[in-house]
Every structure is written in C-alpha cells, then in structure tokens.
C-alpha cells in the first residue's frame, strides 16, 4: 500500500459517507471555477487545504509533496499564457523585439495567467480533498449505487488485483536484480522484457486459480456484496455548507463592489 491510497485509508474522514465528501468537492469546485476571481480561488485553496489537513489529518509535508506534481504542470502551462506576442507595446511590462514583433508579458496576459493558474489550482485542491480522504473501497460503494454493476465490478477486481500483480512483478524484479539483471542498459531492457512476459503468464495462471476459488464460493456471474456501513458526519456536512456559502458570498460581494 502506498501513496494516495495509503493516505486515504489513514484519513480521519475515511469512514465518513463518500457522498458528502463528493458533494462538498463538486460544490466548492463549481464555485471556484465559476467566479474566475483571484480572491475566491485563493480562498478555495485555503479552505480545501485546511479541510484536508485539519479534518482529514493529512501531514503537511505529504500534502505539499503531492501538490508539487500538478503545480509543476500548472506553472509550465500558465507560462505559455503569460508570455506571448504583444500587440500594443504600451501595455508591455517586459518585452523583447523578435523577428519584427514584440514578445513578452503584458498586464492583461499576466492577469489572465494568474487567474487561470489560481482557478486550476483551486480545483486541484478540491479534488485532492476528495482523493486524499476517500478510500477506493468507499468510492466503489458510492459508485455501486448509480453506475452499471459491470463497470464497478470490473473496477473492484482491477483495484484488488493491481496490488497482487504489482507485488508479483516486484518479486520478479528483485530476483532479477539480485542476479545482476539490471546491470547496464541492454541487460535492463532484456530483463524488463522477461519481467513483463512472466507477469503476463502468471496472470493467466492466476485467472484459473481465482476462477476455481470463486466457483468454490458459489460464484454465479455477479458480485453482489454487502455495502459497507459509513458514518454520516454532521460536522463535515455543516462545515461543507458553511464553507461553500462563504465562498459564494465573498465572490458575490467582490462582484458588487467592483
């Protein structure tokens, strides 16, 4: 167990109804995206990060480390918006002449870039709140209520066997590495090829065994399972409504006053 999967199971909100968390995520994300305001986006980031860190109990270091991944993508993405060709040289904050035109940063492009960056980052913190506080098992229970059974069953099986296959691949990798299988580029390529082939074959053999085990347990073609009990959290519901209302009011006030 590693990464986001592990944090989600460790979260203090792990056993809280996934529906509540999803609604909170979607509502705050909708507010953040629809207002297009620096203030609202910044507040969304603050509120959702606080929810993940304080309510969920995620460690600050892990949270920041995880946020760095989308952060890097967002920065490179917004740079291309902020820096561009400038039509009216008077607006330019910084610019250089290049092939008969001026390229650089203008007040307008800077503003657009910052707003887009903050909106996107706000949405990311909303989604992180959901993924860092909702274990996959709880998400699957939520999906089971609305999605066609086949999809959820496939997801459940994939989710379970990813770890089984991953572990097996890990064992093969260790065995190869301890016999110098990854010594040098060409050998690494060879070994990786062997590893993939072996994992594939083992999966096939495992399918037979899993099928036999399922049949032994009376499998008839569908996975009806007991829905897990989840706690409903009045505290989270209240805070979610309060936070969303707060963001909407701030956004509306900002519009009225400017």
């Amino acid at each position: 167990m590693s990464g986001i999967d592990k944090y989600a199971y460790q979260s203090k909100l792990a056993r809280v109804n996934a529906g509540t968390k999803l609604l909170f995520t979607l509502a705050s994300m909708a507010v953040c995206l629809s207002f297009s305001s620096v203030l609202v986006s910044t507040l969304t980031i603050a509120v959702m990060s606080a929810a993940t860190l304080i309510l969920g109990g995620c460690r600050l270091r892990c949270y920041i480390r995880l946020l760095m991944i989308p952060f890097a993508f967002l920065v490179t993405g917004t740079i291309t918006i902020i820096v561009g060709r400038i039509s009216q040289p008077t607006q330019a904050l910084v610019s250089i002449p290049l092939l008969g035109a001026r390229y650089g940063v203008s007040a307008d492009s800077l503003k657009t870039g910052v707003i887009i960056f903050l909106r996107a980052f706000g949405a990311v913190t909303c989604l992180y709140f959901f993924s860092l506080n909702t274990p996959m098992n709880s998400l699957l229970s939520l999906l089971r209520r609305k999605t066609p059974g086949l999809f959820v069953e496939l997801m459940e099986l994939c989710y379970r066997f990813i770890f089984v296959v991953w572990e097996e691949a890990g064992k093969i990798h260790t065995a190869q590495a301890s016999r110098l299988g990854y010594d040098g580029f060409m050998r690494s390529l060879h070994s990786m090829g062997d590893l993939v082939t072996n994992v594939f074959l083992r999966v096939f053999r495992r399918v037979d065994r899993v099928t036999a085990a399922l049949e032994s347990r009376g499998f008839e073609g569908n996975f009806e399972l007991l829905a897990e009990q989840e706690e409903s959290s009045r505290l989270l519901e209240g805070l979610a409504i309060a936070a969303t209302m707060f963001l909407i009011i701030i956004g509306l006030l900002e519009r009225l006053l400017t």
Partner: peptide
Amino acid sequence: PDDQLFSASVTKDISFGLMK
C-alpha cells in the same frame, strides 16, 4: 489467499456468497 480474496474490502469479501 490472494487467489481467493477478490475484493479489496475485507467485509465485502466475507459477505460474498451470503447475498444469494
């Protein structure tokens, strides 16, 4: 046991079979 446990949730896995 990795051949037998097909659900990532312990409770759900145990409940399999009872539902029918």
